[in-house]
Amino acid sequence: MRASCGNRGDGARNVPAEGILVFDRETKSVVDLGKGFSSEVPNFDAKLFFLYPKTKGWAVIGRSDKYLPAAAVKVTSVSDREITFTLKESGPLMVWSETGAPQMEGATFESLGKGLYLATIPVAKGRREISLKR
Rank of each mutant, 00 (worst) to 15 (best):
Y117R: 09
L87A: 06
F23E: 01
E129Y: 06
P92F: 02
Y67I: 11
V95S: 00
T84E: 07
K133H: 00
K114M: 01
L93Q: 06
N14H: 15
G34W: 01
P102G: 04
V73C: 06
R127H: 00
S64Y: 03
E105C: 10
L87K: 12
G34Q: 14
E40V: 13
T108I: 11
V41F: 11
E105S: 14
S97R: 10
R2T: 06
T120F: 11
S4L: 08
Y52K: 11
S4C: 04
P42Y: 09
Y117F: 15
G91L: 04
S77P: 06
C5Q: 10
T55H: 06
P102T: 03
L48V: 13
Y117E: 01
S97H: 02
L112Q: 07
K125H: 09
P92Q: 07
P122C: 08
A3N: 12
S79L: 03
A17T: 12
L21M: 03
L51K: 10
T84H: 04
T84C: 03
E18P: 05
E105L: 14
E82K: 15
L93M: 02
K88P: 01
F85N: 01
P122R: 13
I121K: 09
G11F: 06
K54E: 01
I130L: 06
R13D: 03
D32V: 04
V31N: 05
S29V: 00
S90D: 04
F50M: 08
P53K: 13
I20F: 03
L48D: 04
S111N: 15
P69V: 02
E105V: 12
F50A: 10
A46C: 10
A124P: 00
I121V: 15
T55G: 07
S131G: 03
T27Y: 07
Q103A: 14
A72I: 03
V22K: 06
G19N: 08
G115Q: 06
A119K: 12
F44M: 13
C5P: 00
K47M: 08
N14I: 13
G113V: 05
K66S: 13
K66Q: 10
G9N: 11
S111E: 08
D65K: 08
E89Y: 13
F23L: 06
R128V: 00
K47T: 05
I130W: 02
E18S: 14
L116Y: 02
F23V: 09
T99A: 14
Y67N: 09
M1F: 04
D80F: 07
A107M: 09
S4V: 02
P102V: 01
G57Y: 00
N7Y: 11
G62E: 03
G34P: 02
V41T: 05
K125T: 02
V15T: 13
A17V: 14
L93S: 01
T99Q: 11
K47V: 11
M1S: 10
E18K: 14
E89A: 13
D80I: 08
A124K: 10
G113N: 07
C5H: 07
K125V: 04
G9L: 08
A124W: 00
T99R: 15
F49Q: 06
G11N: 12
E105R: 15
R81L: 09
A72L: 01
P16C: 12
V60I: 15
S38Y: 09
Y117I: 02
R2A: 04
A12Q: 14
V75Q: 04
E89M: 14
T108H: 14
L132T: 00
A3K: 12
I83A: 00
D45G: 12
Q103F: 10
G126T: 00
N43S: 14
P92N: 10
E110W: 11
S79T: 12
